[in-house]
Design a protein around this nucleic acid. Structure first.
Lengths: 149, 149
DNA sequence: ATAATAAAGGACAAAAAAGTCTTTTAATAT
DNA sequence: ATATTAAAAGACTTTTTTGTCCTTTATTAT
């Protein structure tokens, strides 16, 4: 795997797509999201459920229903998305998998990895869900496998 | 999961333990390694096989056999261990899971994540397998769940 | 009220990762 | 030479992750 789980990767792409849609005042359904971010539709449904339960996205049922963000969610950080899906191990866990590793009892790599964790946290805290709305609307950024010209 | 797979975590702990043992001119068997790094013995066997095939560690069969490092392996980087077990996705893969993401066609997070990848690479390239030998021998660093006093 | 729509929820299925067990191969003491 | 030791190899099981499908619940338009 890469840095995050497959579920988290889908979640990241999904929230940016929902953000862009809400920016255009449009609720979007699972199918439309799945088509636009190249993810399996039913599996994405499960992930959106989790995001919804965790207050990362909002949803409404019935005709014209779908997923959307209010200003409140637009200001959430990408780190919250990751935590909702993968938990916070990547932010706080020991690189060597030692459960007792801490500041008092550091593993050999503990101090070395501080910089990586700090950088990761800095970036994921610094990206709001609204951050790419403009470029996504302009088509300058993509969330799927198609190349941008 | 954390940053690496469980297999990679065991691999990291194992190579440092083997390095320390070789530093003391002692070959070590799977059982002894497993006991000292808190890993399931047969599973560790599989991981050591992979490391051996990839030239990260050496092994000899029969009585007084076991795993060991020569000066050549002592100078290998921790990044090589990770690559041998988890592959290089964590170093080069797209954080959002987009296969076509590249310098020409960057995903929204591509440039943001450059710093994380660079930091991770810098650290894992900067740690040699021999790096902690001295502190491990002195008992100042540990590779298992026991706290150091 | 009712039909249609769309997410929520739960039960499954498939694939991958993690872990176990047994046999084979190679080395070395005796 | 032979018994013993220890890694290599391969088959297998379990658990977790990923992915699917079907039913229920809530909303809305008619």
């Amino acid at each position: 795997m890469g840095m995050f789980s497959k579920s988290a990767e889908y979640a990241i792409r999904a929230v940016f797509f929902i953000a862009k849609s809400s920016y255009l005042d449009k609720k979007v359904g699972i199918k439309e999201i799945a088509n636009n971010i190249d993810s399996p539709e039913p599996f994405l449904g499960k992930i959106l459920q989790q995001l919804s339960r965790n207050g990362i996205v909002r949803s409404s049922k019935g005709p014209n229903g779908g997923f959307y963000l209010t200003d409140e969610e637009m200001n959430k950080k990408l780190s919250e998305v990751i935590k909702a899906i993968d938990g916070d191990e990547i932010f706080i866990g020991c690189a060597m998998g030692l459960s007792q590793c801490s500041e008092e009892f550091p593993c050999p790599l503990h101090n070395e990895f501080k910089a990586v964790r700090a950088e990761l946290t800095r970036i994921l805290d610094g990206v709001s869900l609204a951050k790419f709305n403009h470029e996504l609307v302009l088509g300058q950024l993509k969330l799927n496998r198609s190349k941008n010209s």
